[in-house]
Each structure stands twice: as C-alpha cells, then as structure tokens.
Amino acid sequence: MLAVLSQVVWRRRLTLLWWSLGLLGLDALLAVAYPTVRDNGELDRTFAGLPPAVQASLGLDAANRLTSPVGYLNSQYFANLLPIVLLVFAIGLAAWSISGDEASGSLELLLANPVSRIRVALERAGALVVLLGILTTVAALGLMLLAPFTGLTRGLGGDRILAAAMATGLLALVFASVAYAVGAATGIRSLATTTSASLAVALFVIEGLAEQVRALRPIREASPWHWLLHSDPLRHGLLWEAWLLPILVSVVLVGAATGAFARRDLR
C-alpha cells in the first residue's frame, strides 16, 4: 500500500527535519523580536506613510498596524517569508517528483516494476502534499506555542495562526502543482522549476501593482496571492477562496499532467 508515496516521505525525512528546524528558528526569532516592535510607535507612522500598494503587499492597512499582532505577523511572516520558504521547498520537490527523477534515470527503474505510471504520478503528488502539509503544520505549531510568551496572541487566536499557515501552504501547493504539471508533461526539470517560480514572482508583483494599476485587476482575481492576501486569514480565518480555489486548481493541474505523463515517451 502506497509503497511509492511512503518511500518518498521516508527518503526525505532528514530534509524535512532541517526545513522544520529552520522554520521553528524563524518562528522563535519573530516571537522574540515582537515586544521591541510593539513598543515602537515610530514604526507605525513610518509604514503608514508608505504607498498603499507597498502596504498591501505587506499585508498592512489602516486597521492592521505593524505593531499589532496581526499586522506584525502579516508583514513580517505570512505575506512574504513563510510563502517564500514554502514555495522553495514545494517547487523543488514538485519538479523532482517526475521530471527530476526522470532525468536522473531512477524513475525508469521504478517504472520497470508492477506499478502504473498513473499510480507513480499520483503517489508522488500525494507525497508532496504530505511533506508540504507537515512543514506547514510545524510552522504554525511553532508560532502557536511561542506567541503567548511575547504577547503576540493579544487579540489573535491560535486557530487564526493555523488558518494563515494553511492558506500559505495551499498557495505553495498551487505553484508546486504548476512545477509538477510542467515536469510531468514534458520531462524537463529546468522548465518545470523556472515556469513555476517565474509565475509565482510575476503574480506577486502584479498583486502589489494592482492596487494602483486598474488594468491589472482582472489578472489579480486569478492569482493565488490574491486569494491568500485579500482574504487575510489571520483576521478572518480560512475563507473559501483561500482553500477551495487552490485545491481545485491543484487537482486540475495534477490530473491533466498525470494523464499526459501516462501517454508520453520517457526521456
């Protein structure tokens, strides 16, 4: 049962440990630094003077000042640092899942066994979800455990932190699905990584610019960044756009790419 999925998770257990420790370290740093930020009203005035687009891209507005727990965590963590860490982890793993392993020659060896291509592809996608899920949960739990000690929970429940982390993990899942899909359909790892990473960067930039550039707004509606940042899970919890849309898009991408992978020539 799930011999392909469990092998990936088992082989990556040390990698996962290092990434988890890194994120926990980051969580600790954020928590420890918060009291200093909270007591610095000057910071709020400085950030309030920034253009709305920049503020929005940091997850700040009039209601969410930098010194509030929500404003602090959005601007320092959930709107940038955590997504970047999760994106790097997930895109790398997703590009490896089919195309990276195919280029290294070991995918062919696995496919000489009594497993269909569809099973290998879907179990590898499943392994990606499991590993990304664990890492996201670790990031949330670390913050939930450390935050109460430094006042970060003032007006902010642990469920909101968990919701924000999950929404961020789902954002990473969408772009990982792009990498997975391009890799599975073409077998070219570099194409998988660059397509996904540049799409993530481009949509992030558009998300910031769309505050001022009206023409960009329709694009923004289709952007995972918008689903995450606009729904602001740290304030509102997990709204449907922050979980349903990413899951739908990922399922479609993985499904279509798995079909293409099952039919094409291996490289």
């Binding site: 082989r11 290294s104 020659g105 070991s106 060896l109 000489a112 009594p114 497993v115 099973r119």
Partner: peptide, 19 residues
C-alpha cells in the same frame, strides 16, 4: 503494468537514488 512483476530489467545506464 501488473505483468512487470514477472520481468527483470537492467537499464543500460543503471542509476538509482544516490542516498
């Protein structure tokens, strides 16, 4: 694919997960 249970294959350039 189930038939591959009864097949042994050695690729020309044998490579596996290096770890």
């Amino acid at each position: 694919p189930g038939l591959r249970r009864r097949i042994g294959y050695l690729p020309g350039d044998f490579r596996m997960d290096p770890g």
